[in-house]
Simulated assay, not measured.
Amino acid sequence: MRFIGSLIEKLQRHPKRIVFPEGSEPRVLQAARQFRSLRLGAPILLGDRTAIKEAAEKLNINLEGIRIINPATSEDLDNFARRFEALRRAKGIRFEEARAAMLNPNYFGSMMVAMHQADGLVSGTNEVTGSVLRPLFQIIKVAPHFTTASSCMIMEVEDTRFGEEGVMFMADCGVIPEPTVEQLADIAVTTAQLAHKLLNVRPRVAMLSFSTKGSAMHPSVGKMQAATALAIRKAQEHGLEADFDGELQADTALVPDIARRKLPESKVAGRANVLIFPDLNAGNIASKFVQHIARANAYGQIMLGLDRPAADVSRGSNAHDILGVAAIVGVQAIDYKSLYPDAGNHIPGE
C-alpha cells in the first residue's frame, strides 16, 4: 500500500472522475465508496439505478457523492449512438445497432471518457478482457504519435530489494499475444513513461528472454535484441530519459549478485524496475505467479498507448485492487499529455 498511498496523496490534490461500468458489482461499489471517502474525485457508476441502490443497501454502502447513470435512460444515449455510428460507418453499422451498443455500459463508459465526461475508466471485474478492450479500441483508439496499444501490470512486493522499493512494472501482460519488434519497443517505452510518471524515478528497463546477451541462440533472442535497440531510439525521440538493456534473463534483471557476475557494467541488470516480456504467454503467466506466490499487490491491466486513461482489472480483483487501479488511472489523468502529447484532442464522430 506504500505505492498506492503516494498516488492517493497526489490525487487528493487533483481529484478526477472515474467511470465504473459495472455499477452494481459489490467490489466496485466498495471501491467507489472508498474512492469518494478518500476525496480522490467523483466515482460514476453505470447500470440500472434500482439494482445499484439495492446492491448498495445489502452492503450498507452510502451512495452520497457517487453519481449513477443508467445508459438506457441517459439524455446522452442518442448523441453517443450517433457518434459511434459515425466512427463505425466504414464497418456498415447503422444507428439502431450503434444505439444498441451504447446500452452496453462498457461502450457507454468508453464514450463518456472519449467525450470528456469522465477522466478515466475502470472495468473488468465481471467481464472477459475482450468485452472491455473492444469498446476502448473502437471508441478511444491509439494516442497520436503512437502505434501500439498494450497494457502493463504494476506489482508491489514486500521485499523492497526488487524493482523500485518493491514496485515493478510488467508488460505486456494482457493485450498483444505475439508482439513484433516495433510493438515490443513501443511497449517498453510506454511502460517506462508510466513508471517515470507514477514513481518519479529513472526507469530501468529489462527486455527479458531465456538468454542473457547471446548466451543462447534463437529467433526470439534476436527479436528482443532488436527491440532493445529500437526502444532506445524511440525513447530518445520521445525525450524519455531511461535505461534499456537486453536481452536479459529474469534473474539477471532482478538479482544484484547474479547481475554483477554476468553484466557488471549494466545500468539495468540487478536493478530493473520495468520488465518487458517477449510475448503474452510469458507476461501473463509471470504476473500471476508473482501476484499469488509472492502475495504481491497487483494493479492492472493498466492500458498503455491509448488516447485516454483506462484499465481492465482482473475478474479475481478485490475492492482494494480496484481502488488502487482507479487511483492509478486518476493520477494518469492529472497530466495525461505528459505521457502522450496531443492526447485527448480527438472527439469521436467529428
Rank of each mutant, 00 (worst) to 15 (best):
Phe20Lys: 03
Ile139Ala: 05
Asn106His: 08
Asp76Trp: 02
Pro179Trp: 02
His238Cys: 14
Ile68Lys: 08
Ile93Val: 15
Asp78Val: 08
Asn70Phe: 07
Met1Glu: 14
Glu156Arg: 12
Thr252Gln: 01
Asn60Val: 08
Leu254Phe: 09
Gly305His: 01
Ile302Asn: 00
Gly92Glu: 05
Ile69Ser: 07
Val132Phe: 02
Tyr336Gln: 00
Glu165Arg: 11
Ala294Ser: 13
Arg39Gly: 12
Lys234Thr: 03
Gln12His: 12
Gln332Trp: 00
Arg94Pro: 00
Gln291Asn: 08
Ile69His: 04
Phe146Tyr: 10
Ser151Lys: 11
Gly305Met: 03
Val113Asn: 02
Ala192Met: 02
Arg2Tyr: 07
Gly5His: 04
Arg2Trp: 06
Lys223Gln: 15
Arg271Tyr: 03
Leu77Asn: 06
Ser266Trp: 01
Glu25Asp: 14
Phe146Gly: 00
Arg67Asp: 15
Ala229Ile: 12
Arg271Gly: 01
Ser110Trp: 02
Arg83Tyr: 06
His238Tyr: 14
Glu247Pro: 11
Asn200Ile: 05
Leu87Gln: 10
Ile232Phe: 08
Met153Asp: 07
Phe137Lys: 05
Gly330His: 05
Leu87Val: 03
Tyr107Phe: 15
Gly166Trp: 00
Glu178Ala: 13
Pro264Met: 04
Lys91Pro: 01
Ala235Glu: 01
Val325Thr: 11
Asp335His: 04
Asn70Ser: 12
Arg271Glu: 09
Val122Trp: 00
Phe244Glu: 07
Leu46Gln: 07
Pro341Cys: 06
Gly124Trp: 03
Phe289Glu: 15
Leu136Phe: 00
Leu240His: 10
Gly300Pro: 13
Gln225Asn: 09
Arg260Phe: 03
Gly330Lys: 04
Arg82Met: 10
Gly23Ile: 05
Leu77Ala: 06
Arg27Met: 12
Gly109Asp: 01
Asp312Tyr: 01
Ile154Asn: 02
Glu57Arg: 11
Pro348Gly: 11
Ser131Arg: 06
Pro71Glu: 08
Asn79Met: 05
Lys91Ile: 04
Ala227Arg: 06
Leu184Ile: 00
Lys58Ser: 09
Lys91Gln: 11
Arg315Ile: 12
Asn281Thr: 11
Ala296Asp: 03
Val142His: 00
Ala171Gln: 04
Ala98Pro: 13
Gly283Asp: 06
Ala231Gly: 14
Ser314Cys: 14
Pro179Lys: 02
Ser6Val: 11
Ala143Lys: 01
Leu121Cys: 04
Leu11Thr: 11
Met224His: 05
Glu241Leu: 09
Ala185Val: 07
